[in-house]
């Protein structure tokens, strides 16, 4: 039976150890991977950071603001007709769903080989009335758009300010 002073001391030490552990986790999580010390500590902290979703870099719009991009797609129907869509145009800026769908489109645009099939399956379902056969994905990557361009009445997505990247044609899944 541990006496009360010893018990209190033990609790104090355990709690203090946890505080050190968690503080270390908060500091190590965003540390650069190139640091040998951070990398070693991260190996130890990895289960704790990952399980509780604490492994974060805090690099909001950093190091650069990013130029943005816009996913577009063309639905090919059974008659060979092509229907063009700009999915972000349909999003309402009032609802949080805008952010979710933009994020989905960004991931598909960044890694069409991984997320394209599932994304196209959803788009085929969405446009089922068109009897889609395949979807062609395109990504418009924005270039620098300067104040003079804005004052001259241009838009950041005008052809001269974007690079069009073909992400491929993906067939709709068979029903």
């Amino acid at each position: 039976m541990i006496s009360k002073p010893w018990r209190e001391g033990l609790v104090y030490i355990v709690i203090s150890a946890f505080l050190v552990w968690h503080t270390l986790a908060l500091v190590v999580a965003p540390a650069p991977d190139t640091s040998v010390i951070a990398a070693s500590l991260r190996r130890v902290l990895h289960p704790y950071l990952t399980l509780l979703k604490l492994d974060n870099k805090w690099d909001f719009y950093a190091p650069n603001a990013g130029r943005g991009h816009q996913l577009r797609y063309v639905v090919e129907d059974a008659d060979g007709i092509r229907h063009s869509f700009r999915p972000t145009d349909d999003l309402s800026r009032i609802y949080p769903s805008e952010w979710w769908f933009r994020s989905l489109y960004d991931w598909i645009a960044d890694s069409p080989g991984i997320y394209g099939d599932a994304g196209v399956a959803m788009l085929c379902r969405k446009h089922a009335a068109l009897r889609p056969v395949a979807v062609v994905l395109t990504d418009l990557e924005q270039k620098n758009f300067w104040p003079d361009d804005q004052l001259n009445g241009k838009h950041p997505l005008d052809p001269e300010f974007v690079t069009e990247k073909d992400l491929g044609r993906i067939a709709c899944p068979e029903k």
Partner: peptide, 11 residues
Amino acid sequence: DAVWFIFTNDE
């Protein structure tokens, strides 16, 4: 320039 480029971003 960061704030400018943030607001020229399509989103």
